[in-house]
Every structure is written in C-alpha cells, then in structure tokens.
Design a protein around this nucleic acid. Sequence first.
DNA 1: TAATAATGATAGTATTACTATTATTTATTA
DNA 2: TAATAAATAATAGTAATACTATCATTATTA
Lengths: 229, 229
Amino acid sequence: MSVGIKISLNDKLYLRDPQQTSLGQNIIRHSILLIDEIGFEDFNFKKLSLQMGSTEASVYRYFENKHLLLIYLVSWYWEWVSYLIDINTMNIEDPVRKLEKTIETVVYASKDNPSIDYVNESVLHRLIISEGTKAYHTKLVDKENRDGFFLNYKRLSEKVADVIIEVNPEFPYPHALASNMFEMANNHIYFALHLPRLTDVAVKDGNYDEVQKMLKYFAFSLLKCDQKK
Amino acid sequence: MSVGIKISLNDKLYLRDPQQTSLGQNIIRHSILLIDEIGFEDFNFKKLSLQMGSTEASVYRYFENKHLLLIYLVSWYWEWVSYLIDINTMNIEDPVRKLEKTIETVVYASKDNPSIDYVNESVLHRLIISEGTKAYHTKLVDKENRDGFFLNYKRLSEKVADVIIEVNPEFPYPHALASNMFEMANNHIYFALHLPRLTDVAVKDGNYDEVQKMLKYFAFSLLKCDQKK
DNA sequence: TAATAATGATAGTATTACTATTATTTATTA
DNA sequence: TAATAAATAATAGTAATACTATCATTATTA
C-alpha cells in the first residue's frame, strides 16, 4: 500500500516471491479476479496466463500449483485483516470496545481504504468467502500445517482470543469463539447470498450490517457482558 | 437399514438411483471409503471403478460427475442425521432436553447403531467433516439450490431452528444458530485433529465429548437458559 | 559491455473427465 | 423356457488439465 506495509508470508508458499516483481504482482492481481469470476475448480494456470498475456510456464515459476496459490491468497487476506485490526484497535484500552472494533473490522475488512494496488481487497474478500476453506480442507493439511502454511490465520485467531480473555477471563472457549467468529462472518454472508434459509440475516449491495450485528450479539451474549452501544 | 428406512433424496442428483441396484450400492460404499482415503481432489471415477472391480462407464451411468456424487453423499448424511434426531427426540416434551439430545445426536451421529449395510456411517461422518462444505462452495450453488440439491440440509436446519424457538421464543437468530451448530460441530472436530490452535477442545480416539460439551455451552448460553444436567 | 537472470514461445507427456460403441451378462416377461 | 430387454463390461477415443523441458529473447546488474 502507499503507506508501505509489507504483507509477510511464509516463503515456502511460492517458488519466487510474487510481491517483488511486476509479473508476480500481475499473477496475484489476475488470479484474484479470475478465481472470483469462474470459481476455483474451473480456474487454472493456462487460463490465468492467457488472461494476463503471459504464459503458463511463467506462472509455474512463481507457484507450484493452484492449491498453493490459494493458500497464498488466503494467508494474504488474513494477514491483511490482522493488520487492519491492529490499526483500528491501536488506541483502544477498553477490551469490550476493542472486541467490537475487531468484529467491525473482520466484517468490513474489504471496505477499508484502498491499499495495495495489485490486490482488489473487496474481490479478494468475496473469494475468501466462497473458496477460503478449501485452503485447509485437503489431505495434505497436516504436512502443510507443519510447514507453517496456516500460521497467519492461527495467529490472528490467537490475537482475537486474547481480546476475548480480556473481556471475560472466565470464558472457557476463547480460541473456538475467535475462529468461529471468522468462519461465521464469512459463512453467513455466503448463506445470505446463496442459501438464505440457513441464516436470519440479509445482505444487499455489500451491506453487511446485519451480519455484524449478529456477530456482536453472539459474542457478547456468550461473554455475558453488554456491548457499549 | 434392517429396520427398513429409505433415505429419500432429490432424484436430480443421479442418473440412475444407486439405492436400487447392487452396483449402485457398491458405488456408494466404495466412494465413501475412497474419498475418505485419498481426498476428494484426488478421487475420480476411474480410480473408483478400479477399486470396485467395475468400469468407469458404469459409474458414469449413475452419476454425472464426482461433484454430484459428493452432494449425494452429503445429502444422504444430513438426511440420516435428521432421521436419528427424530428417533432420539421422539418422546421428549421438554424443549431444553430436546435440544440437548439434538446436539448429542449431531456430534455422535456416526456412533449410532450400524444401519444401512452399504454405508459406513462413521467413515461418512469423517468425510463430511473434511469435504462436506465443498458440496455448496461452488460457482453453481444458485442453480443447484434452485434444483433443490441442498434441501436436506436446509430442512434439518429448520427443524433445529424450531426447537431453538421453543426453548427461547425471543431469540433473534434461530436459523443462524442452528446452521452454525452443524458447521461448528464438524469444524471443531476437524480443528482438534488438524489445526488445534483454532479451538479449545481435544478429540482422541473418536471421543467427541468435549465438542459436545462446548456446543451445549454455546447454545444454552446464547439462549440464556440452563442445561438440565 | 558481458554476464546473469527473468520471461516468452513452443512442444511434449501423463492424467483427467468424460462420450461412444459393441459385446456380454443378467433380469424380465411372454 | 425361450425371447427380449436392460444393465453392465470391455474397449477405444477425445478434449482439457496439470504439469515439465528446452531454447530464444529481453531485462537487469556487475
């Protein structure tokens, strides 16, 4: 982004760092757009290179396969959310306000100012919502987890778990509540758009207020404490 | 099953009803085992037919492709859970007890008596946990939803939402809580096994007691009412 | 300016995701 | 029980996918 943050990701995810070259940045840019457009199953490096005006071989020099590219994008996203949470809660002392602000950030991450020019955050958000869990639902989870492929998500969960503990030190499931909040945020946006009988919230024109309200209700109900506003 | 229930599924999911022939039943039996073994991505009809001692062409006469087979298995699973919930809560009047029993059933569905001989329920459960959400995370969701491919899951959610409303008619998110309970049950078993930093529960040797306890804690905390025991 | 590294162009291979055709077995029914 | 139909097996074939390899060209950097 203009301010110059660098999203730091596990370097085993790629063969050549895509953030460092313009071809690499193009791969990121166009893979986000193309996966969003045609879905992860139909996406491949041939189509991507065609759309980019590059070649299959070149893309393969950056990523071993599309699965690792997806993990890369997912990691990028959570690292980005994590960064936004840091900024947005920076000067907040009160843990309840901090948790509220965290929830707001998770739901509206993509609406936060434009940032890194080769990443369309709002398209990426949509992609994470529909394809995100495929990153870790694979036969290779254990190996990939050992290789640290999911660290960004786990660290973010732990960061939020820490806030949860601050709000209520007696709460027995801080990590589960944290990860569930992330999963729920994405799931219920998806449900609202595609399987509305599975939820009670509605979403229209990118307005996720009802999702946000529900997440706050769930969190503060469980933590047996009142919201500030 | 011996008692003679018939799991009724949308007939657009298949080309020929697999429950009606022994080849069809074999397809179900072996696809469950093989997907569990090698994962959905590496699974294909060639490998399946090889393992069954049949041919690719024969499998294609039952299912258009592996994606529809997955939806079939997922639907089968939720219909089966739904059936178990009906039996297990049949004579329970008290909604709180009913919800407790429902949660127990969801978490331990696979442990319920052996049933239909061509379905290994406990392997199927494991498969749903790791591959289940791929059934509806696809570019075709809307079309497939219109075709009624996800009815079993939606009806089950609504059934549980009804119990939730009985427990607390003021609760504003009964559908979301219901679907979230299903998602959470599977997610946290998966997390406990593969990404433990994302949860607080542990699972060993198929013992899901901690998951069950957590789900009850979440549900009854949200519904602001005490559990019975 | 020479050397090095990155990219493009092109080709090739094994596997996947099917469809088609014909032969054979099994089930049905006359 | 023979005739007929239906289901399955065997085999082959095609287009697309998921890569790998090679060599030419263009940038970069020493």
